[in-house]
């Protein structure tokens, strides 16, 4: 109602972002204590194994990098007031296209092959995103549903391609052929998979932040998403901020897939990206769709997944329990234990 003073300190404001990770952590400790014969050791391994050696540290960072790129794309569409539920298929098709193109171009120079693979992988994702964005703009077709359906269909098509026409008959796995050594992204911390994609991820997040909060176009996108009528009234071509965010979002997911192919999997195996797209949506939401908060959120999720595999390997923690543990962290991570007044609470005034 009236201008607010900035000075007054409110404890709930300070505590609430801290209390939810704390609650998630406590629930984690409780489950570990209940199940594990040596809870302290298990907990220690959970917390430290992701950084215990170059292999785990590198892989943890590498996975976080992939999550950052994909989550940036997901968050862009959220910011534009829509929902890209097709990350999973966009990433998977990116992995497939990048793998196929790099193998096809392997007789040319490595630079050309890698550049071609990344471009092709990104464009595949972009094409899928564009379909959802264009249908939304043209006929107001529900974006959440089109992106999901297209993604689900494409996953089956890729599965078909890697079982049949593009499959590697020599492998006992359902997969394409492997990408030749020369075309794989250089490992920074061997034997881990950490490569240039992590640096690219940080750069993308920073560029995305600058775009969203420092440029006129970013403000137009956010306003189109939040207050569409006001954006139209202000002379913004809101239709651009429907198709283009979806295109870029698909592109970033395709790029995630390309990096995963050239730097992590070195092939496109059946269901290899299983869950990356979902985790990226979680990362975006946990980071409140903020480009810079996405970075710690991705590190958190990556650390958790790495720690879980650590305790399964080294402390005899039953591997079946790790999804349950993960579920509880997800339950707690966006929970709010203090009531804070926001715009939504007062809308009826």
């Amino acid at each position: 109602m009236h201008p607010q003073k900035k000075s007054s300190i409110k404890w709930p404001d300070i505590l609430s972002p801290l209390i939810t990770p704390a609650a998630a952590f406590i629930s984690l400790v409780l489950i570990i204590t209940a199940v594990s014969s040596n809870p302290l050791n298990t907990l220690y391994i959970f917390l430290t194994s992701p950084i215990s050696n170059n292999f785990y540290l590198g892989n943890m960072l590498n996975y976080a990098g992939l999550l950052i790129i994909s989550a940036s794309g997901i968050s862009l569409v959220f910011k534009a007031g829509m929902f890209n539920l097709g990350g999973e298929g966009q990433i998977y098709s990116g992995v497939f296209t990048a793998t196929a193109v790099s193998i096809a171009l392997s007789s040319y120079s490595p630079f050309l092959a890698i550049a071609g693979a990344i471009t092709a992988g990104s464009l595949t994702g972009a094409a899928m995103g564009t379909v959802s964005g264009y249908l939304k703009m043209k006929w107001n077709t529900n974006d959440l549903i089109t992106s999901f359906l297209l993604s689900a269909a494409v996953i089956h098509i890729v599965n078909y391609l890697i079982t049949g026409p593009m499959g590697d008959p020599a492998s006992y796995l359902i997969t394409t052929r492997e990408i030749p050594q020369a075309l794989r992204l250089k490992q920074f911390l061997p034997p881990s998979k950490l490569n240039i994609s992590f640096i690219a991820a940080i750069i993308i997040a920073v560029i995305y932040y600058i775009y969203l909060y420092r440029t006129a176009s970013g403000l137009k996108l956010r306003t189109s998403g939040k207050s569409r009528l006001f954006a139209i009234y202000s002379g913004v071509r809101t239709e651009y901020f429907v198709t283009i965010p979806f295109l870029v979002s698909g592109l970033l997911n395709g790029l995630t897939g390309s990096f995963a192919s050239l730097g992590t999997y070195y092939m496109c195996a059946y269901n290899c990206t299983g869950g990356v797209g979902w985790s990226a949506i979680a990362v975006s939401l946990i980071g409140r769709n903020h480009p810079l908060l996405i970075i710690p959120a991705a590190l958190f999720i990556s650390w958790m997944e790495s720690g879980l595999s650590g305790i399964v390997l080294y402390s005899g923690f039953p591997f079946e329990l790790s999804p349950i543990l993960q579920a509880f962290v997800f339950f707690f991570i966006t929970a709010k234990f203090f009531k804070k007044e926001g715009y939504g609470d007062r809308r009826h005034f």
Partner: peptide, 20 residues
């Protein structure tokens, strides 16, 4: 909690419980 995230959590929990 964000309903999408708690939904993801519920799916994970279901999967985990069934496996266990």
């Amino acid at each position: 909690a964000n309903i999408f995230i708690s939904g993801l959590a519920a799916n994970l929990l279901a999967y985990g419980l069934v496996t266990v």
